[in-house]
Nucleic acid binder design. Sequence first.
DNA 1: GTCTATAAAGCGATAGAC
DNA 2: GTCTATCGCTTTATAGAC
Lengths: 193, 193
Amino acid sequence: MKTLRPPAAKATTDRAALLPLLGEVFRAHGYEGASLALISAATGLGKGSLYHFFPGGKKQMAEEVLAEIDGWFEANIFAPLRDPSDPRAAIAAMLSGVDSYFRSGHRVCLVGVIALGHARDEFAAPVNDYFARWQDALAVALRRCGLPAATARRRAEDAVLSIQGALVLARARNDAAVFTRALSDLKTRLMAA
Amino acid sequence: MKTLRPPAAKATTDRAALLPLLGEVFRAHGYEGASLALISAATGLGKGSLYHFFPGGKKQMAEEVLAEIDGWFEANIFAPLRDPSDPRAAIAAMLSGVDSYFRSGHRVCLVGVIALGHARDEFAAPVNDYFARWQDALAVALRRCGLPAATARRRAEDAVLSIQGALVLARARNDAAVFTRALSDLKTRLMAA
DNA sequence: GTCTATAAAGCGATAGAC
DNA sequence: GTCTATCGCTTTATAGAC
């Protein structure tokens, strides 16, 4: 009897553990700044192993990291916003979920980093999709709170934009409290009549 | 009689004409993405000439571009905000000045790009200073409009952050109208009692 | 002051041993 | 599946002719 273990399952598990590490490297250094040497150091894997997992190289790594981030937001933020049961609670949960995801302003948004960087064109579709679905889901919740459709759409855009701007300013001023204050202001603005 | 021309003046003039071109390359490709080859193509100058003007290389180029941007905002945005004669007009002028500077959302903020990129640490001081002085100048004007100091400071922070976020989102969604809408919302929020 | 040539290092990516 | 070695290219920066 051989010690037979399903190699696919093992590989999938390792890959899943790999993506968050890659994400942090891309966040810290940007897409172009994240060299394979840095990625290799952060993951403890040689280039050979990295190309075994990601035959498409750095671009595939970034694509999968973006897809994982998108999946997290879809499950934890967007889907609850679309749930009709308690839209006000979903909006409050979004704000607290965003606060913890971005570590109260200490962590930057990789999608925003890529949007401002040179690699924007290569990832235009997932980047646009992420923000579009965020705004749409939030607008749905706001409409269910009684706002007219146009107001809901505009207020949702304001929320997404404020979060991104707060992350930029927090990073620029090296002051994470900017982000916390912005989320607090945002809560008031979103819930206003 | 020789055709004696002051070489310093000529050099300064050329250098001044050079900086905006460099700025556009940095904006379009980011600090790391702006290779000397791209800069050479954009300016029509060989590497030798570039190093003649900027012995400190790419870093010096970026420093001088940032200084020029800072100087423009100081003269056209910050100083009018600090002028006590008509604070409401100065705020309105800021919004329209910002709209034209960022080409109604088609142009990105280089200071924000650097803040989110890998080069942030190298330019931490000028980046922080730019945003700090913007917020301070705006807070001064808001206070002169009758707002309490704490409210003025927080509202000024909200304005700076919203402009940055609008530029990020406009770029991410490839929709400059986001920026125009954000400026419109911002005008209402800034002038509110 | 502008150019070409070149150096030295780092990059993404590949090949092949194990 | 992981590694080392290496390829080919690009990068920043310098040297020196003109």
